[in-house]
Amino acid sequence: MTLPDLGIIEGFYGPLWTMDERRALVRQLGAHGYGFYLYAPKADPYLRRRWEQDHPEHLARELAAFAGFCREQGVRFGIGLSPFEIFNRFDDGARQALARKLAFLDGMGIDELAILFDDMHSDTPDLARTQAEIMHWVMAHSGANRFIMCPSYYSDDPVLDRVFGQRPDDYLEVLGETLDPAVDVFWTGEEVCSREISPGHLRRVAGQLRRKPLLWDNYPVNDGDRMSRHLHLRGFTGRPAANAGEIAGHAINPALQPTLTAIPALTLAQSYGQGEDYCYGEAFRTAAREVVGPDLAEQLLADLLVLQDAGLHRISEERMASLTAAYGEAEHPAAREILRWLAGEYQVTDEMVQTQ
């Protein structure tokens, strides 16, 4: 079967990855059909709360070099910019600041640009039309080849209404009617972290948006106070290969652990490639052996219930010592990520989520 346009969105809360970690993930996943990488970590303040400021020169050079590396691997590089609550006041000052930022991003050599309106409060009466207007302005002032938008309400999940205010009536319909058809629109499914995403649901959303949605899949991401206590390692489920014909692409928001995230990421490509023959357990074993080698893959399989299901808060002192000893003997980046997780170094607090 033909793979959809697969991608990686580095869009989580929590600690930043290193450039070496990003390169390793791109190299591995690019060989399996992943075609784009969107850099949008919540911990990069120059893309969110301090978006009007340029990245410091050394960081800008590193990002430009990473963009070049992605292209060498056949992977498109993009930036996800969250101009914080700009839709509440898109005046001349905001336009000038945004024009400067877009020119700065063009200088990095980006292929794709996403404007992310998610996780922000709005007091704008005509929100969808205002956001479409901003997107059209961005398209006229950016040299990117592809434009993506994440709407304020990017899921049916009522949690968005509770946290950010009641969504306007017909928000998706107005956005679909007003927004240039060339702009892709991110969508996470029926929930922010969807257990299942079905062709029927995608067709309904496509009708509202007047375009096929671009999936922003919040698996295997594990940010947040609760989720960061668990490692998301299992193969993808609830994403049938039939979805491929209903979407503009499928991008995953990765786990906090860059090496381990490659395991479920590889199973997504297997799921689309194998169709009805896909078996998520076997896909996990195949992917784990490729990413960490046969011995460590068997260790992960043996510990899967503890690492993914029980989580840090339910590991006894005795089991903690056993796990630390087992992974301490393995000379592999994935084992080091597990040791860091066991030590609590990947814990994401509510304060981090509220301030990043």
Rank of each mutant, 00 (worst) to 15 (best):
M352R: 01
R162I: 10
L256Q: 06
I197L: 08
I9P: 08
V292W: 07
T259N: 04
D91W: 10
F12W: 09
E72H: 10
L175S: 09
D118S: 14
K212P: 03
D303E: 15
R49M: 13
S316T: 15
L127F: 02
L47S: 07
L301A: 14
G273I: 02
I197F: 04
I148P: 13
Q270G: 14
R49E: 11
D118A: 14
G207K: 07
I110L: 11
G293H: 04
D20G: 00
A310W: 15
M139D: 09
T188C: 06
F87M: 12
K212R: 14
A325V: 12
A114I: 09
Y37D: 12
I197S: 03
W341N: 06
F84A: 05
A94C: 06
V291M: 05
G238V: 01
A255M: 15
Y46I: 10
T267M: 12
G109S: 07
E318N: 12
V348F: 12
G33W: 00
F117T: 00
R289P: 00
E85M: 13
H230L: 10
P83I: 05
D180R: 06
H332Y: 02
L29A: 01
I263P: 04
G30A: 06
H32K: 05
Y278H: 14
A103H: 15
D225C: 14
A94H: 11
E196H: 10
T286W: 03
I115S: 08
A99M: 13
P41R: 00
A335C: 00
A242I: 03
L105A: 07
R319H: 12
I115H: 06
A132T: 12
R314T: 13
E57D: 14
G80N: 12
G30L: 05
T18M: 00
Y346V: 11
V306S: 11
H230V: 13
G68T: 05
L25Y: 01
G165L: 08
L81M: 04
L339F: 14
M120S: 06
E10M: 02
R49T: 11
K212G: 04
